[in-house]
């Protein structure tokens, strides 16, 4: 079961005409948002997108755009307060950001 966050907020956009069907985006997405349908990539679970930006960065054909960032309330508070350092930590063998 995929835990989904807020509805319809992601800035992810797929520009089908530019997609060459190389599959790279479907391989780098950590949330299974993109899938190949025939020769084109498709957004199949929009609300699962965490705006990490991996797909857009690794699409050599600029077919994907997303305003990438980290969904962390504390980082937003910190940046509003002008603080620079947030901390990160790893959860056993997987990375996560924790704010401190």
């Amino acid at each position: 079961m995929t835990l989904l966050y807020l509805r319809d907020v992601t800035t992810l956009r797929l520009h089908e005409e530019a997609c060459t069907g190389c599959k790279v985006c479907t391989l780098v997405c950590p949330r299974d948002v993109l899938k190949m349908e025939g020769k084109k990539a498709r957004i199949i679970e929009k609300d699962a997108c965490i705006e990490c930006g991996a797909c857009a960065l690794n699409c050599a054909f600029d077919a994907i755009t997303v305003k990438a960032g980290v969904g962390c309330a504390n980082a937003i508070i910190n940046s509003k307060l002008g603080r620079k350092n947030a901390c990160c930590v790893i959860d056993d063998d997987r990375d996560v950001c924790t704010s401190c």
Binding site: T10, I50, G71
Partner: peptide, 20 residues
């Protein structure tokens, strides 16, 4: 609880901004 948005693997920046 909102503090947990950062360590979770399910949130997006647009979403957290909206929530806040």
């Amino acid at each position: 609880s909102m503090n947990f948005t950062g360590s979770s693997t399910v949130t997006s920046l647009s979403g957290v901004k909206k929530e806040m």
